[in-house]
Design a protein around this nucleic acid. Sequence first.
RNA 1: GCACCUAUGGUGAAAUGGAUAUCACAGCGGUCUUCGGAACCGUUAUUCUGGGUUCGAGUCCUGGUAGGUGCACCA
Length: 556
Amino acid sequence: MESTIRNLITEALQAKFGIADVPFSLERPKDLTHGDYATNVALIASKQLGKNPMEIATDLMQMLQSADSRIASVSVAAPGFINFELNRSVMLDILADAVKDSWGQTTVYAGKKILVEHSSPNLFKPFHIGHLMNNTVGESIVRLARASGADVSTMSFPSDVSLGVAKAVFILLEKYGADFVPQEVSVLGDAYVEGTKRYADDETVQSRVKEIADNLYAQTLSPEWSLYERCKEFNIAYFEEIVARLGSHFDSYIYESEAGVDGKKLVLAHTPQVFTESEGAVVYTPDESQKLHTAVFINSQGNPTYEAKDLGLLELKFGKHSPDLSIFITDAQQVSHFNVVLDAAAHINPVWKEKSLHRYHGRMSFKGQKMSSRLGGVPLVEDVLAAVIEEVKEKNADITPEASEMIGIAAIKLVILRAMAGRDINFDPETSLSFEGDSGPYIQYTAVRAMSLIQKGAAAGISPHMQKPIAGTELLERMIARFPDIVTRAQTEWAPHYLVTYLLELAQAFNSYYGQHKVVDEDTEASAYRLGITHTLHTTLIKGLDMLGIAVPEKM
RNA sequence: GCACCUAUGGUGAAAUGGAUAUCACAGCGGUCUUCGGAACCGUUAUUCUGGGUUCGAGUCCUGGUAGGUGCACCA
């Protein structure tokens, strides 16, 4: 349709004014009262023609008025826009697909292999609210990718070996002995915090922790190694449980310990060509023009740093999965780190940089305070969820446990997803969390209400269909018909918030309609049509929310 | 110090260079013997600042101001 209109404009321009090559745009106006398509061609051409844009627009409008049977009307608006409104039948043709399984499936990345890495946990640290943000953004990107025609696989990159882990292991050994078997994740988290404190001001602790770190890196058989292995296994099980609750599953893991071994080899193999030795460490110094900082890849102790681990990760990722696009999600603080790593990686294998895409999210502060699990006192995901679910139950005492879980998660996820990724969110449960207005539960509620109407119709023997259109639903039809375009945009820019904005507007439009019209009444024919629209609305909300990682309960 | 990011009603956010800057919360005023009120309708109030580019700037360029983040052996 778009190219048809574009051609019609070009032809009219040539026929009427004898000019070509006007770089005009043809867009889908965000304001639906401006029609289905709008062009600025008259504004662009006015300089070249030396005429008033309104005159040009009016001339073109007259020529385009009946140029295509799918165009219902063409109008001119100041300062010189030409708006096209399509026939209702065009919308209804699109809506015929809205109740099919394929609704919302696009071909944006058809045939591509996409790998998404997100939610990477730090073992020995409980899953806190920062991870929740990463998981929410990551899961939504996974689901957008799955709706794009791509072959998608997911992975996570657990941080399983580090000095911090060694500090925790030191405490566990000291407190519980080598035979320690973890029962609760909080014990590990507490050990992490305590270890950090003890390490800070005690030299004998420092040397012992470093020794433990060496043994963990080298996988040397030792009391710390076997204790550590039990904790690692326990941690992964905990991680899988909590992300499953949030709707995520990982096809595979690459551990930092593996990536570290790989990364160290890679760095050494490319020294001194790419990396250089400096003060006992191996570093990478980017070209001056890059405006990046020098980074240590192997420290003077001989262990790979975060940089080398991420380099090793690139080799492992591309070696195992050979993706056409490798997306990874982290918080914004790591932007310059990855710029350096990718810059270094490009010297080893340019593909690693070309096919990698870093999407970052902002930081979540809690009641105005930056969260750091290293210092303790961090809100954990399970605690936050429990608090929110409690609120849901207060609002509705009859709610099922499944429904309250879905509603609580929707409320939190929407706070994160409605903002453009990359911005910080100050998460204050008092004000950030909402069950009304621009909120996850509002959209869920609208979907549940729509389903309830359909059931009411069924009880009255009315089944939804769209054979005989009636007046009053045109706006809803137009909005629903745009769903595939919105999904396409969200996928192209990897920006779930476009979808959030759309779903909120759509839910509002439906609720507004509902407030003014009776959907199911004595007029069976008209009721069936209204239910037909209601049905397409329902599937659109369900599919849209699913792409955000949000499920909808049956009742709420 | 250098680099990157951000600045929109009282609050939280949206806006592919486009039309009267959109939405929610809060406030104020209504709908209400419901098709499921987690709803609907009305109303008050917003682009940090100076310059520039453009037919047109919240958006692009540039100078400032304010905030955030990163800059060698943590991840």
